Amino acid sequence: MTTLEEADNALHIGSTTHFFLAPVATEGWIDLSTFKFTDESTWPENWTWFGDTSSENLPEFEEDGGEMTMKRTADRKNVRAVAEDSSLSGTINSVAITKDFFEKTNSSGKWNDETKSYTVMNANGGKEWKVQFITEDGDSQGGFGLYRAQLKHKFPTNSLEEFQEMPVGVSVLESGGKLYEIFTPRKRAS
């Protein structure tokens, strides 16, 4: 049974979000008991920060499908519940549109150093990564990790009042029978 103290400690407003990538085969996750965003020495070697993302359009995920249907026999109703296939996808909006950004989100393009531009060669050219989102709320942090996800940038959007954004589609893929892991809030490293 959850105590009031446990319930209070579990309340978390993830208003600050850090988005990290690693090769899919990377073992483990970033250790939230020692991680401190402003101290890069706490970032594991295989993990790289994605770059600044939008504060106006925070990462969003949704599940498509997965509805439950009740099955029956001629004699009995509601004998078994069967779930339909489902998929999980989301969008992250980058505001740091750099050469590094394109190299993380497109496998079929080419950077031109002279013009500081990126030419997309194939609209289907995403890249696969292991992904971890770390959220901060005061002195606590939590988040979630995707064991395998394909990232693919979309066309940029503009605003009169906010930074230019480049939406990135995220398709969550299965890896060794696993999809994602949720990290409950805990005290941030001091």
Rank of each mutant, 00 (worst) to 15 (best):
T2S: 14
T3C: 07
E6Q: 15
A7C: 14
A7Y: 15
A7K: 13
D8L: 14
N9K: 11
L11T: 13
H12N: 01
T16D: 03
T17S: 12
F20W: 15
F20S: 09
L21Q: 05
P23Q: 11
P23A: 10
V24A: 00
A25C: 13
A25Y: 14
T26A: 09
E27M: 15
W29Y: 07
T34S: 15
F35T: 06
F37Y: 09
D39M: 00
S41H: 03
S41M: 02
T42P: 12
T42A: 12
W43Y: 04
T48R: 09
F50S: 09
F50R: 13
G51W: 03
G51Y: 01
D52L: 06
T53R: 04
S54A: 00
S55Q: 13
E56H: 02
E56L: 03
E56Y: 02
E56P: 02
L58N: 01
E60T: 13
F61Q: 10
G66Q: 10
E67C: 04
E67Q: 12
M68H: 07
M68D: 09
T69W: 03
T69I: 01
M70N: 02
T73F: 04
T73M: 03
A74G: 11
D75G: 14
R76M: 10
R76Y: 08
K77L: 10
E84T: 15
E84S: 15
E84L: 14
D85W: 10
S87Q: 04
I92D: 06
I97A: 08
T98W: 06
D100V: 11
F101K: 04
E103V: 01
K104P: 08
K104I: 06
K104G: 05
T105E: 00
S108R: 04
S108T: 01
K110R: 07
D113C: 03
D113V: 06
K116S: 14
T119V: 11
T119R: 13
V120F: 05
V120A: 09
N122Q: 05
G125K: 01
G125M: 04
G126H: 00
E128V: 01
Q132D: 02
Q132N: 09
F133I: 12
I134Y: 10
E136H: 08
E136R: 11
D139I: 07
D139T: 10
S140V: 15
S140Y: 14
S140P: 05
G142C: 05
G142Y: 00
G142I: 06
G142P: 01
Y147I: 05
A149M: 08
Q150R: 10
Q150F: 00
L151E: 00
L151V: 01
H153L: 12
H153S: 08
N158K: 13
S159P: 08
S159E: 12
S159F: 07
L160D: 12
F163N: 12
E165Q: 11
P167I: 06
V168G: 00
V170L: 04
S171G: 08
E174N: 14
G176E: 03
G176C: 09
K178L: 03
L179V: 02
I182T: 08
I182G: 02
F183V: 05
F183L: 02
P185D: 03
S190Q: 11
